[in-house]
């Protein structure tokens, strides 16, 4: 490759979903660079918080963002926000790399996928709006439920691991997860 500098347009004001669309439709490198600037530092923070060293975290971020470039056409704004979609890609790359396991993942384009009933158009919230509500509900969780989610997430512990380490009965861990999830779901259902 030549050392020709790539001149990137300033896209600081453009919505993330529009950036992904530009990558999908036009292989737009400026849009991709903007996605990288916005999301790569957070992904790096996530990977390092979960125990990766800096070099390993950077490599996983590179792999994840390369997948964003290649799979931009599969992004579906009705299913998730861009931030969540990119997070799931990084989560899976992390499992491949650091646990040396495959990450089984359902494919939204699997012909066997049982379809969800379509909500009436006026009932369906945009993914972005849903995530705002979800963020509010997450912030309002009782401490014991919020702590459990943070422990599961940042210490990479399964619910069974949490029970074993904390001494909490397994049933208590499960019911806290159930209660937390109930609150998150109610926020999304708008009730």
């Amino acid at each position: 490759m030549s050392g020709e500098p790539i001149i990137l347009a300033d896209l600081g004001e453009v919505e993330p979903a529009a950036l992904v669309a530009r990558v999908a439709e036009g292989a737009d490198r400026s849009a991709f660079a903007e996605l990288f600037r916005r999301f790569a530092p957070r992904l790096k923070a996530y990977l390092m918080r979960l125990g990766a060293d800096e070099g390993g975290a950077e490599e996983v971020v590179q792999e994840a963002m390369l997948t964003v470039w290649r799979r931009a056409a599969t992004f579906d704004a009705r299913q998730a926000s861009v931030a969540t979609w990119i997070f799931t890609i990084a989560r899976n790359k992390r499992i491949d790399r650091f646990r040396r396991e495959r990450r089984p993942e359902f494919d939204p384009h699997d012909p066997m996928l049982a379809p969800a009933a379509d909500p009436a158009p006026d009932e369906s919230l945009g993914a972005q709006q849903e995530e705002c509500r979800l963020a509010e509900a997450l912030a309002a969780l009782p401490a014991e439920q919020a702590d459990l989610l943070r422990l599961a997430f940042f210490d990479s512990l399964s619910h069974a691991d949490i029970a074993a380490r904390s001494g909490l009965p397994l049933g208590t861990v499960k019911s806290r997860v159930r209660l937390a999830l109930g609150r998150l779901r109610r926020a999304l259902d708008g009730s």
């Binding site: 530092p41 923070a45 997070f87 969800a116 997430f153 779901r185």
Partner: peptide, 23 residues
């Protein structure tokens, strides 16, 4: 699937709450 999507959104919020690490 909807349940998992809600949990993934929650995970994404937790990531966004971290101080970012410049590449």
């Amino acid at each position: 699937r909807a349940t998992v999507a809600a949990m993934e959104s929650a995970a994404s919020r937790l990531v966004e709450g971290l101080p970012s690490r410049p590449m």
